[in-house]
Design a binder for these strands. Structure first.
Lengths: 242, 242
DNA sequence: TACGATTATATGTCTAGACATATAAGTCAA
DNA sequence: TTGACTTATATGTCTAGACATATAATCGTA
């Protein structure tokens, strides 16, 4: 990923078309709502086949830079929205990728019938069973994050017998259960006694919280809360403009 | 955006191919590093033309699910990475979109030669001039976020004369300056006196911090720190699996 | 054995068509 | 004016080819 791609190598035609349009959008020459030329007009302008301009426009649409409507044309979408791609890996993979030593510790694992609080957290109505897991991840023997997780056994029956004493539940789930939708909520809290103890920080120290809900189709799979020491851990998202 | 797309409408062929491969990757049937079938093999399996499977594979490559290498084939990339699309709009637009009353207040604006701290924050070496802005956004007259921003005048000379007493600098920049790259860092801190005062929260209360750096090509445009009350504001990112 | 040249091959891009499909716009009747 | 029907059109997908290009694998040579 290079910052400036001003090499002298001639890009392919569809990339040039895409870049041309992107530029006009980013400079504001074509403001939001503006109708960009029809495919057949671009075909004429660039002297190429329709498939070539179609590929350029399709990629712009995929990047949410333009919106394409049959019969109407293609329109510039609000370009002022920054779309950040925040990659949040499996914590084990994340720590290993950082080149640090990964440590895992299961704090508790309970199999129980859902309580009202569980059902609310998972967004399910019917009674059922869950696995409630609490565990800690560390990097180079320093606490990295604590995890509180519920797994809905009606969606993931195998989780009842999975061994989470060695493998973190997040990694296990990623390898065993496909997900189709997820939602992250990021917030900040201050550490209470339990968190401070688990993360080896002071009571009242800031913590970054990530709540993640994962579904497969409309079925809830898991709800997890990750707590990171807020002053040391940082979520970094780097992304390209558009 | 529907949670369950189990309608009976038959998807197009390239989407089916893409979904098939995606599924095998997500279930772990094809683990990272696994070579997925060659285009000509998929052509035979699905009985379609090469362009059709090429489109499916190209989209998977764009989504970073697979890596394609000439002569070698296409390989599964670390599939356990969840890719969250976190849309962070211009704060004014964000509050308006929430259907709440937007309020803006310029706290301070200074034009000055860069200090060493400024240069470090902007990541520039050479001395120059910056505009340093501090302001507050509110929703329905409740403090929503405070913003501390530096704008590099060597990249954005117009910012020297822009009137930030009415228009927030973020909105002004988005409409006047195209950006090509940005980086977000999300962390948590506890409020000190100044923050507590500006956000109308208690000293020691948690705050969510977003540091955003924006570049055009390799030129730094702006560095901004946004502080949100951590227990009330939440960053929500919802995204599709894959 | 090591290294340089050659070759085979999978992907990357492109074409000139085709038919499908959603829908904006126009038409006509109530 | 309103609603229902028809039509025109831009995009969506697909085909059966083509040549370009990067590179893994092979072969030949020092």
């Amino acid at each position: 990923m290079s910052l400036a791609t001003d090499a002298a190598d001639k890009p392919t035609l569809y990339k040039r078309i895409r870049a041309d349009i992107e530029k006009r959008i980013l400079t504001g020459e074509w403001p939001p709502g503006h109708r960009i030329p029809f495919e057949h007009e671009l075909v004429a302008r660039y002297g190429c086949s329709r498939m070539t301009v179609n590929k350029a426009l399709s990629e712009l649409a995929q990047a949410d830079l333009i919106e394409r409507r049959r019969r109407a044309g293609s329109f510039v979408r609000r370009p002022q929205h920054q779309s950040a791609v925040l990659k949040i890996a499996d914590i084990r993979a994340e720590i290993i990728a950082l080149g640090r030593g990964y440590g895992y510790e299961l704090i508790s694992r309970k199999l129980r019938a859902t309580t009202a609080a569980d059902r609310e957290r998972l967004g399910v109505k019917k009674a059922g069973k869950v696995v409630a897991i609490s565990c800690r991840h560390s990097a180079d023997n320093v606490p990295f994050a604590v995890e509180d997780r519920l797994i809905d056994l009606s969606s993931v029956p195998d989780a009842a017998t999975a061994d989470f004493s060695r493998e973190p539940p997040g990694s296990w789930l990623l390898h065993h259960v496909p997900w189709t939708e997820a939602e992250h909520t990021i917030s900040a809290i201050v550490a209470d006694d339990r968190m401070a103890d688990a993360l080896d920080i002071a009571v009242g120290a800031p913590c970054l919280v990530i709540d993640r809900y994962t579904w497969r189709s409309a079925r809830t799979i898991t709800a997890v809360r990750l707590l990171y020491p807020g002053d040391s851990h940082r979520l970094v998202a780097r992304f390209k403009g558009g």
